[in-house]
Every structure is written in structure tokens, then in C-alpha cells.
Amino acid sequence: MSTAPTTEVRTDCSADTDGRITFRLRLPSADRPRLLLVLRPKKGRPEEQSYTLDLETCGEHGHVRAVLEPRPALAEGRWDAYLLRAPDAARERLRPGLRDLRPLVDGGTRAWTSPVTVRVPYATKDGFLALRAWRRTAHVEAGPVDIADGAMTVRARLHGAELAEDAAVRLRLRGGGGTERSYRPHPAGGGAFSFTVDCGELAAAAAGSRVWDAFLRPAADAPPVRIGRLFDDVADRKGVYVYPRVTVGGAAVRPYYTVDNDLAVEVTAAG
């Protein structure tokens, strides 16, 4: 975490359907102010990527705004927002104001093209303004998950690639040296499909408590595409989209979203 000073000015932002983000704040006295976005590095690593936007005067009362255009696509991760009041000023971390994300809410109903890029402004747990970004060549957007009779059925849609006849859903054992289970997608037209996982069979496939990450191979020779849920205004899905456990034999099986909003299945050994 940064120890940069904090400005108490709240920054409002709004999002467009095409990914454009507009930031607005009140800054009565500043000399060529800029807004700085810094990709949060992994723990203990230095910051490597940042993006600077000019803050331009708009309207009266010292309001300024910066526009983050849809392109270039930001690298996947969490981008922290800072204010640079003047060319040589130290950066100040920004606090979030109103985030008008209405255009993002029904993103799942639209067709997306490659590369699939998503940006969701959000408030960090410690109350600062940040941006979550995803950038994927292709993406599978998960929809409703039906859980019944010891099986789960996921409805999903492929974006940015073609769903071929020989496509396959793969659950890959995390830390399992390439261990995978394969499932047949049932096409529903327009890139939409569903697949069903037998929870008992999955629990029996590996001993102990395990996590399986979900992918789709759109065609037998195509690279795997992550299955996740990115197309709305929810920046952190894990604690919000919560699915029930299926108890089979001595294990509990539960689909869930990872901290990156990707779909995974957790198998917990009982006892």
C-alpha cells in the first residue's frame, strides 16, 4: 500500500458502455493538474505501469475532469487513482465520490468483441478510489448457476471467439500439474451454451480439499478461455454472488467467484 498523502476531495466518476471513464473533481487552485493511475504491483514488487491523464477545467467553481478513453486497453489488475496538483507535486491518493455506473449494469446482455476489455471504478476496502481492469483476447461470461440433484449447471456465453463443434469446458485442478476434467458444452445459439458438472464425480476426482478453475476451449486446437463474470458494475463478486454447497459422500462442493471474478469450484473434504 502507498503512504502517499490523501486529498479529502471526493472524485466522482461515470462509465460508458464502451469502457470510457470520466473522472470529475473540484480543484479550485492547481497548476496543470493531472490524474495518475498506477497498476498495483504484486506484494514486494515495484510499480511498473502507470497512466497519466490531463485534468481539464470544465464548467465553473473550479471543477476539472479527465477522460480515460476506451483505448488503449489497460493491463489486467487494480489501478489506484492519484492526483498530481502540479507538474512537480507529490501524488495524493484520491477518495471516491459518486460512481455512476448505470451503463455497466446490463453488460451481460450485449455481445463483446476481441479483445474483451472491462473497467469498473470501485472503492477500496480502506476507502480510496481505484479501477479494476480486465483485458482478455476472448472471454466466457457466466450467467445463472442452477444447482439440483447433486449437479450444477452453468449457463454462459462466449465473447471474442467462435464456439466450434469440438469445444470443451475444462475444470483444471489448481496446483494439480495439469490435471483436468472435461465437460461437453450444450450450445444455445449466438455463442451461448451450458454445461453440467456432476459434483460427486468431481469430489472423487482428487483427494482432499481442492479448487478447480473453469475454462472453455472454444475449439480443440484453440487456447483455453477463462470463464468468469465481468460484465456488470460489481467490482468484487466473491462475497456477493454466493452459491450453496452440494454435499456428496464425504465432501462439500461449491461453485464460487475468485478474487478476480473468475469461476471456480471448491471441493472441501468433510471432517
Binding site: 455506473l101 448457476v145 456477493v240 454472488y241 452459491y243
Partner: peptide, 19 residues
Amino acid sequence: WNNVFLMGSASPMEAEWVK
């Protein structure tokens, strides 16, 4: 679980109401 969501707390609520 596909339709009802516990969103946690949000402040200010205004940007959530308008959704």
C-alpha cells in the same frame, strides 16, 4: 442465489439507488 444479492454497505447510496 441467481436473483437476490447481499451487496454489503455502500456510501453514498445515491449511485446505487439510481441503478
